[in-house]
Design a protein around this nucleic acid. Structure first.
Lengths: 279, 279
DNA sequence: CGGCGTCGATACCCCGGAGGTATCGCCGGG
DNA sequence: CCCGGCGATACCTCCGGGGTATCGACGCCG
């Protein structure tokens, strides 16, 4: 199976429309129809059920869509990492970090690693929430800091770096800020202080609260008294004026892990992981 | 990048010889040389350093060899799983198990899963030591039972099923068989009873002992008084006559996990994992 | 030190197949 | 009943992947 065929099939499977898929691929519709038909012949199984009014996936098509996306990501990752390895005279390590998280750990890690023998330059790639996994898988980064249980290490190699509790981040002056600790139940359904919404894994896509995309937005909304949030306690040093933290007794403990794609255990990656584990 | 180009490059990188690589690929040498050169042009970086006497990998080439193998495995996995999904009228689940291991757990799991609502037929694929990972990654299997720390879950999703201690398996009548427990040090350098050798991860590739490829061979050699071994205690019911087990105090505990490729969390896989966790 | 054998690169040719255009056949809606 | 949208088919073109013949570089050996 060639990646070209896979790309064609994935485009059609996503659009469920040959014409639009062809347009997206920058080609005409007939060769696309032919290519997909040929792929079906080669695989010996129909991938799509076509009527002149609609296109739908067969069970085999569902499988190929999921597997094909992963395979295409792997090919893209190979290409990107090779380009990066060839472009720089010295190799560069790209470390993906959720924007706004683990700042202190990150600073210590970068310092400690830079002092290592044979350290290579490290580029820090700040990601949106939940983007570190994909970024690792498609080769834009070599290593990432993840936070369980929010992120997932599925398909990655990882080592645990430490765990911490979580604190509620509230607007200054809120009724709960006098408490020495709160529980999640206390935070649920606070009058006039809805939980924020964020898209992606672990987020609540519906509800009354404001929608946020990253930590900065979130904290600004807390500052403005429009929402609250629960974050790992290590963010405290980076919090702005006007917000107050209260430990949450029963929040899940957050585990920070360092993760990398399993087959790219290069020397620099191994060194960085070793440094992180010794911190 | 097309899979054809990747296959060509991987062949050359493995053989380090254009002629032999071309032969392996069933083609002539000149088009292979051209294809690799074109790949280098497209990637914008040399992958091989050629003299008329030898071929060697550049750093970028090393990266592409590692990443490319993984990418090709992913493409093959997509192809195989799609074929399987399309071929059978009802989907079939392929479960990879190390030959000779976890027999009791396996039997219970298969029984319990077969009794589930919506269970699909399960095919058991018996693997050589350490082969379950690759078998999962290239799509020959959908789920596997692995044994940490011998196997690795790198690149896989996994759930823990249980841990157990290990026992030494010795020929009947051996001096140590009277002991109620032994330590690893006791087993090291036993006179006339060398440790077995096996290739693959965790094995010792050199040494005086006989070379083995699977459990059956290993146990036969123990029976014959030619070697000893250390195995999880759950193998005891399957041991043949003529061998004796003694608990090993300080051997690493073995964790049995059920693992699957992260992107193929189909309904049957999820059911089987759920069943395993409830055992 | 010169001839030879080995190996990758180059030159040149051919053909399959990928992609384009025109058009058909099917089907749902007004 | 006709129109419009959509996928399939027919047919053509041309690029490029693959083959053969050959060159040029470089160890090796007599």
């Amino acid at each position: 199976m060639e990646t070209r065929e896979l790309r064609y099939f994935v485009a059609v499977a996503e659009e469920l429309h040959f014409g639009r898929a062809a347009q997206r691929l920058g080609m005409a519709q007939p060769p696309l129809s032919r290519a997909v038909a040929q792929l079906e012949r080669r695989l010996g199984t129909p991938l799509l059920t076509r009527s002149s009014r609609s296109v739908a996936l067969t069970p085999a098509g569902e499988v190929l869509l999921a597997e094909g996306r992963a395979a295409l990501a792997a090919v893209e990752a190979a290409e990107r990492r090779t380009r990066r390895a060839g472009a720089a005279d010295r190799p560069v390590l790209v470390l993906a970090v959720k924007a706004g998280a683990s700042a202190e750990l990150l600073a210590k890690l970068l310092d400690a690693y830079a002092a290592e023998l044979g350290a290579v330059p490290v580029e820090v790639l700040l990601c949106a929430v939940g983007e570190q996994g994909p970024v690792l898988r498609d080769g834009r980064a070599d290593v990432a800091l993840l936070h369980l249980p929010f992120d997932t290490t599925a398909g990655l190699d990882a080592e645990e770096l430490g765990t911490e509790g979580q604190v509620a981040v509230l607007p200054a002056g809120h009724a709960l800020t006098g408490r020495t600790a709160v529980s999640l139940a206390d935070l649920d359904d606070l009058p006039g202080l809805p939980a924020p919404r964020w898209t992606g894994p672990g987020g609540r896509p519906d509800g009354p609260g404001p929608e946020v995309r990253d930590h900065a937005q979130l904290l600004q909304l807390v500052q403005l008294g429009r929402t609250y949030t629960v974050l790992p306690e290590s963010v405290r040093p980076q919090l702005p004026e006007g917000v107050v933290t209260v430990p949450v007794r029963d929040a899940a403990r957050v585990t920070t892990v360092i993760a990398w794609p399993p087959h790219s255990r290069s020397r620099p990656v191994a060194d960085l992981v070793g440094t992180a584990l010794r911190l």
